[in-house]
Structure formats: C-alpha cells, structure tokens
Amino acid sequence: MLAVRDLSMSFAGLRALSGVSFEVREGEVRAVIGPNGAGKTTLFNLITGALVPQAGELSFAGASLLGRGAPAIARLGLARTFQQAQLYRSLSVIENVLLGCHAAGRSGLVACGLGLGRARAEEHAARLWAQECLARVGYAGREDRIASELPLGEQRYVEIARALATRPRLLLLDEPAAGLNDSETDALADLLLQLRQSGLSLLVIEHHMRFVMRVSDRIVVLNFGEKIADGVPAAIRQDPAVIAAYLGNDDGTART
C-alpha cells in the first residue's frame, strides 16, 4: 500500500537517506530500526510531506505522494505521531482528538457561525467519534483536561487517538515506546496489535528491540541512510550485517 523507491535526501552535503526502497503491505506492522542518525525520522518527514525528497518515488495506494502538500497527503489516509507527542498544549484532550476529525468536516465558516443544525449535528457526530478513538487507545482520563497537564505517557496515547480520528489507512508511529517502562511497553504492543487486527497498517520507528520483535511482521534496518536488511523478525535477528551495525549485545536491547 505504501511504496518507497530509491528515496534519497541530504542536508548540506550530509546524506540522511540514500536509495532506500521498501514497501508496506495492507494490514501489516512494518518496523524501521537503525541507530540514531540512521535517517528514520527523515524518512517519516518525507513520507508525510513535511520534507520534499531530492530523488526517488513515494506512492500510497497507487497514488504518487510527490508534489502533494502535507494536508493532501494526510487526507489520503496517512497519519503520524511524533517522538515527542505534539499535542496542542492549551487545548483539552477531546479538542485535540477532535482536530483529527477536522479535515473530514463539511460544515463551513458560515454554517458554523450561524450555528446551523447540520453544523451542530456534525459536531455531535465528531465528538462521538473522538470519544470512540480515545476509547480505542484505552485513554481513561477526563477528556476535558488540558493537554499540557497530562503526563507524557498519556500525551502519547492521546496523540495516537488524534491520529486515529483522521481515519487513517496507514499509521506512522515515531518511537512510541520511548520512555515507557516494561509493562507500559507491553500494553502499547498490545494496542498496536489490536489496531492491526482492526485492519490498520502501521509503520513504526522504534529502538526497543523486544517491542519491535513482538509487534512487527517485517523489519527494515537502516544504517547511515542506507538499507542494510529487510525481512521478518527472526531473519533480522540473525542477520550478520544487522548484528554488526546495530543489535550488538544479545540481551535483546539496543545499544544507543
């Protein structure tokens, strides 16, 4: 469903990505791993339209992503979360998630200003959907809490709920397990597997190896902007190039 072909990007002569190709199939969890600076976040920025690639091809569900702005790409059904949750700090939890519903909304400025029935009905439906998205990620707090007051772990779940509210077909998660303890990481893995069960495809950047091995169907390994391996977790675990570049120690955690 997502195809990345010969993608290259450099910043001021520094090659962040060179000739990377891989694809994400419908309904799979695809992980991207690699040491810090391997180009993983650059990859996400290119896919979501925050950056424009210097070379290569990106397509999603048969449509090229090149030359489309970030909003248009998002409306094709791609949603992402960030390494550090980027919620609207002054807005409440439910308002944050409702912003995920915004692009799908039909009622315009005049309908909203006049408070027409259809604008109200749409707002009501959006609110129910936002609550459902919060329920899907298991957010159990008060939905009128201000985002900046939430602990970081909860912010991450709210951000996933906001991404889900856009009704994505592919969800990109940038280090969702960073800073979580073991049981929180397990809970997150359960959530991702549940989302896959519901038909969503996922592309996940992560350092936490036990987590990656558990949730991924297939893994891409990047090192210094190049793809050095691509395959199922069992194969990646034994790939000599990967072990040399990245996995190193055998206790299942990554060197960072």
């Binding site: 925050a50 912003l99 995920g100 915004h102 604008a119 707002e123 959006a126």
Partner: peptide, 21 residues
C-alpha cells in the same frame, strides 16, 4: 465551533495542523 478550534490549533502550530489534513 470546529472552526474556532481549528483557529486555536493554527495559533499553536500550523505545521502540526497541516499534518492532520
């Protein structure tokens, strides 16, 4: 309304808002 909410979101950051479509 949803518009006022979007305006406040744009005030906080238009790049992240664009990523939501």
């Amino acid at each position: 309304s949803r518009m006022g909410r979007a305006y406040r979101a744009i005030k906080e950051g238009d790049a992240a808002t664009a990523l939501l479509g």
